[in-house]
Amino acid sequence: MSTGRETVLARIRAAIGAEQGPPVTGPSATGLGLGPGPGTGSSASDPGAGAGSPQADGVTDRLAGRRHEDIPRDYLPVHRDEDPAALLDLLHENLADYRALVHRSTAADLPATVARLLAAHGSRTVAVPADLPPDWLSAAAGVAAVVDDGTLTAVRLDAVDSVLTGCALAVAETGTLVLDAGPAQGRRLLTLVPDHHICVVRAPGQIVASLPRALPRLDPTRPQTWISGPSATSDIELDRVEGVHGPRTLEVVLVTES
């Protein structure tokens, strides 16, 4: 295993060695003590490793070593108006465009809305994360909650009719729901195996305009699932068909304060 590692690193250094330029200050690179030139375990047989580039002139050198933070990012942070009402409408429109069923509700009406959706789907069982706000299911009489205490298996979930969760945030421009196993979301398999997913989004707090707005709010060390509409495929004649392995029905409840 380690021979493969040294060989690959040596080949990379041989390929780029002479062009590396000054030390890169990539994200957190310094904290890991990964300096330029001959790194961990490179041997004298690396032709390019650590060659440095004393002969390179200043301009080429700077270009070659352009720092990560100098990458031109002239693209837009958002493409649309960030007015909360406009974002709510845009999210609604884009979710619906990819065949999610979108509903609006006030916070007070949420239990009734959830109950109505479960009844309309004919669901008798609904999987929920252990920390689901208790009132969300308070009006769903006749639907048994299957609470995930961390031991629910995929086989058990396969026999559950629906799943109800919240989300971490939603991206209006792309019609995307992000789940990161945070509050009211549960483990990833919960929203994967049942065929019907109801996801609650709180407006305006959980809605951002764009990806550049979303990423700083997310923690990369948490497992994440980004969901943009129900499961789909374009594999037959490059034509989009909804519904393969993930939930075939995605319902989104956009909750406003009043």
Binding site: V8, I16, L34, R66, I71, R73
Partner: peptide, 26 residues
């Protein structure tokens, strides 16, 4: 801003390739 996104994508990849050993170790 497609052109700018494209330029940024190119620059990120070029930068990474030029320092590929360090990024792989990281």
């Amino acid at each position: 801003d497609w052109a700018e996104l494209r330029a940024a994508g190119k620059a990120i990849k070029d930068h990474t390739l030029r320092h590929l050993d360090r990024y792989l170790l990281q």
